[in-house]
């Protein structure tokens, strides 16, 4: 397919892809099959860059004064936490592509399932985070754009909210402190870089309002994908350096030892 047949730009619709991932501070234990972590007893959170994607979508809707922000998450039932939090922050409704064993899915399979779930929505824009903090495939958004037949931009660090009439002007981060502005005809998919703006917290009012918002569960036949990448084994990274651990768990004693090392071994004092 080659894009949507027509666009009515009165009500701007933005779909935001959000993923539930292991909490950043969680101590990870490798699962019994050694193919993933043991997710059972760890805390989860919204993937960091997805939170920024939602924030940018909400700010665009506010700048426009009208429109709809729809959250879409693929994952097990526990991902409802992420969805409800997004609704409390201001998203209007949600689509949950329920997949209990989502960790075994490859990025193409994930993108394909999401494409099937949102195609009929004919959104003006689709936002995702840059990459997930668990599997870090970093390509679900780009593949999704190709499957939907819409253009994409990755590493978006600013959106020009003053210009939102059938096109969007966005700033992409390049390497080594370089940036570049691009203009996109809509519809388009943007993958959002962390730090694009300050994320709001959910207000009490928002949390109350979220209870009335629609969450539509979608169950799709997850198609087999012959060219999928498959995780054979996960393990702690092999250490490349011999680390001298100081203080033996006592940070203050470690600090004393460290300053001694700075003097005698590292020789900077």
């Amino acid at each position: 397919m080659n894009g949507y047949s027509f666009l009515i730009f009165i009500d701007m619709k933005i779909i935001v892809l959000m993923k539930q991932v292991a909490n950043k501070d969680a101590v990870l234990r490798i699962g019994a099959d050694e193919k993933w972590i043991n997710e059972n007893d760890i805390a989860h959170q919204t993937n960091e860059s997805d939170g920024y994607a939602l924030e940018e979508a909400l700010r665009m809707k506010e700048a426009k004064g009208e429109g709809e922000v729809v959250v879409c998450s693929l994952g097990p039932q526990s991902a409802k936490t992420v969805i409800k939090d997004a609704l409390a922050r201001g998203a209007d409704r949600a689509i949950h592509v329920v997949a209990e064993d989502s960790k075994t899915l490859s990025p193409y399979q994930i993108a394909n399932a999401i494409a099937d779930a949102i195609r009929e929505e004919n959104a003006d824009m689709v936002f995702s985070g840059l990459q997930s903090d668990d599997a870090s495939y970093g390509q679900t958004g780009v593949i999704l754009a190709e499957l939907l037949g819409i253009p994409h931009a990755t590493l978006v660090i600013e959106v020009d909210r003053s210009k939102l009439e059938g096109s969007v002007r966005i700033k992409r981060e390049l390497e080594s402190g370089w940036y570049q502005w691009f203009n996109y005809k809509l519809p388009a998919l943007l993958t959002i870089q962390s730090g694009i703006s300050q994320i709001r917290y959910a207000s009490l009012k928002g949390i109350m309002a979220a209870k009335k918002k629609e969450i539509r569960d979608v169950t799709l036949p997850l198609e087999n994908f012959a060219s999928a990448q498959k995780i054979e084994k996960v393990y702690m990274p092999l250490k490349t350096k011999q680390t001298q651990m100081l203080g033996n768990g006592d940070a203050k004693a470690g600090a004393v030892e460290l300053v001694e090392k700075l003097k005698t071994e590292i020789r900077v004092l």
């Binding site: 995780i231 054979e232 996960v234 990274p237």
Partner: peptide, 14 residues
């Protein structure tokens, strides 16, 4: 993967 906390050995199908 997992922000550098784990390594994964991966094969490609197809």
């Amino acid at each position: 993967i997992f922000l550098g906390k784990l390594d994964a050995d991966v094969t490609i199908g197809g």
